[in-house]
Amino acid sequence: MSIIVKYRGVEIERGDKNVLKGVTFSLSKGEFYYLVGRVGSGKSSLMKTMYADVPLYSGDCAEIMGFDLLSIKKSQIPYLRRKIGIVFQDFQLLQDRSVSGNLKFVLKATGWNNKNDIDSRIDEVLSMVGMANKSYKMPHELSGGEQQRIVIARALLNKPDLILADEPTGNLDPQTGYQIAALLHQLSNAGHCVVMATHNLQLASDFPGKLMRCEGKQLIVE
């Protein structure tokens, strides 16, 4: 399988605090990875390094889809982020516009200009997440599970090879969380690489994937 992320001997720091050291792992297309560990163990920090929200200063190698995170320029970061779909726990949808408006905002911000192409892509991603008939709804009119499906649709807009989901079921009831985990696994089976940070180890049992554990300032790949 095609490796799209490769870290070797990477140190991750927040402020003057060492969060993770000697981080070494690789991620491949079409694979599903669970990222687990206690609160404050470095899960979110590790994810944020992958889209250059937390900078990396030292390591032997930190490459992601052709970008070198150890030397990436600020001007390159938007292009890196277009290759990554990010699913947030707290949705981060724009409350003053519809589902379609939220998705259109992202496409226009990432260089899409043709109205027909924009409308077609919005229809396509909403169908992929089972929300084809919800494009006119405002975020507050949707349930938590429906909002998370829209967030996943938003993450898919630019056809990313890598999807990072940071506690995507954390604010959902167990049944809805189960459905979201199932949807993310479908995307992995379709060829996306998915990394899902979670505290719910039952999901890892119900939906098998590779396990990465943050513990004692180390990343343990099982």
Rank of each mutant, 00 (worst) to 15 (best):
D68V: 02
C61N: 12
L56S: 06
N102V: 10
D90P: 14
K74P: 02
M65N: 07
S75N: 04
G59I: 05
S58N: 08
F105E: 11
L27V: 15
M50R: 09
E31S: 15
S26Q: 15
I64V: 13
C61S: 14
I72L: 06
I86W: 11
Y79R: 06
L46Q: 00
Y33Q: 11
F32T: 08
G101V: 09
Q92D: 12
L56H: 04
A52D: 05
K73S: 07
S28H: 15
L70V: 01
T49H: 03
F67N: 06
G30F: 13
L70G: 03
T49Y: 00
K29A: 15
G30S: 11
K43I: 02
S26G: 09
K48P: 01
S75A: 00
I72Y: 04
Y79C: 00
S98H: 13
S45T: 00
Y51R: 01
V99F: 14
V39A: 12
S75R: 07
P55Q: 03
T110D: 04
Y33D: 11
D96W: 12
V99Q: 09
F88T: 04
I86C: 04
K74A: 05
S28Q: 15
F32M: 15
I72P: 03
L35V: 08
L93D: 14
D68W: 05
S41V: 03
K73G: 05
L69N: 04
K104A: 12
L56I: 03
L80Y: 01
G42T: 05
Y51C: 00
V87R: 12
S41H: 03
E63R: 09
D90N: 15
F25M: 14
S71F: 02
G59M: 08
F88L: 08
I77P: 04
Q95H: 14
Q89F: 12
G59N: 05
Y79P: 01
R38L: 05
G66Y: 01
L107T: 07
Y33A: 15
Y33L: 11
I77T: 02
F105L: 11
K83R: 10
S71D: 07
D60Y: 10
L107Q: 12
F105G: 05
K29F: 10
